[in-house]
Nucleic acid binder design. Structure first.
Lengths: 173, 173
DNA sequence: TCATCTGATTGCATTTTGCAATCGGTTGCA
DNA sequence: TGCAACCGATTGCAAAATGCAATCAGATGA
């Protein structure tokens, strides 16, 4: 996990940033899950990252300029991690990645509904989402004043699928 | 490099397919470089992959359904690797990845011109490119009969930058 | 007071990687 | 016919990365 710089190829350099098994997972949880704290990332992700790997990746992502860290005013020990613009602009890549995975890989229905929605929303939805992330993480004003946030919309769709699956599994209570 | 299936999340599953340092590099060289043989991939890529890693990744990508392998009729020992539709549909992801890397990472000018062109071309150019790849690798007919192939276009742009840089480096012969 | 939670760190076994040398078979050329 | 060059790999080995569990000191809440 060093900074080789094997070549100046854009694809290669991108891979050197997040071409490992965990960096993008962490960013995914921050972007789509709204996770900001070490413990949230440690326990919250389904994949179960180890704490030493998480610490290493957070440090690395900060060195690379993808994250910043700040003290949480509400708790002297708590650190808040924020996405930088560099990380926020990964949203279209994550959207494509999710769309591709949904088509070609054995994704679970609950988890792929969000990828489907994000794909259907297209660039306008991605832009709106990035604006919301900038507001959350960089403190920029939200110019588009619209009701439900993209994250909440995606989460609601997920909950709906989970609920409907639970219902069909046990039709009567 | 096993097939964990840590979770059914589309992004996670995608990462389990090409979330390592070499798989996407190999696919990049096949897609953009037109490489089809083991030796071409071994010696052709700037990053210098080791032969055992290359062999391992080719095997793995075949198991995952991203590549197929066939005998080269012209040479009893030669194997030809082909992209499957699953791999060809990575083109938009590679385009986005290149575009992102070009903005945020210290890419070399020669190598980033292709990413820039591919980004500017947008989905229509990607579709044309994918059609050409299907023709090369899957034998499907080329419905759009247009002059220069996308790969040749990108390559020409690359050569032009290389030539202009060489000129400005040594103005007179 | 004291259990719990905070962001980590340490030690250790396992796995993956990178590198160089090598393999048996094929080909093209003299 | 000889032989160097090339074909797609394979092997051995050292170094690095990973996964896992235990642990840390300080802060917090009851």
């Amino acid at each position: 996990m060093s900074l080789d710089r094997r070549s100046g190829c854009p694809i290669n350099l991108s891979l050197e940033v997040f071409g490992d098994r965990w960096s993008l997972i962490i960013l995914r949880d921050m972007i789509f899950g709204g996770k900001r704290h070490f413990r949230e990332l440690l326990n919250g992700s389904m994949e179960g990252i180890a704490s030493n790997i998480l610490a290493d990746r957070l440090k690395r992502l900060m060195q690379l300029g993808m994250l910043t860290k700040a003290d949480d005013p509400s708790h002297k020990q708590k650190a808040i991690y924020s996405l930088t613009e560099m990380a926020i602009t990964l949203v279209p890549i994550l959207a494509h990645l999710g769309a591709w995975g949904r088509v070609w890989l054995p994704t679970s229905e609950e988890l792929s509904i969000r990828a489907e929605l994000l794909e259907k929303g297209g660039p306008p939805m991605w832009e709106k989402f990035m604006d919301e992330l900038r507001h959350e993480h960089l403190g920029t004003p939200l110019d588009t004043a619209s009701g439900l946030s993209v994250r909440a919309t995606l989460q609601a769709a997920y909950q709906a699928v989970v609920a409907s699956k639970a219902l069909s599994a046990s039709p009567a209570a």
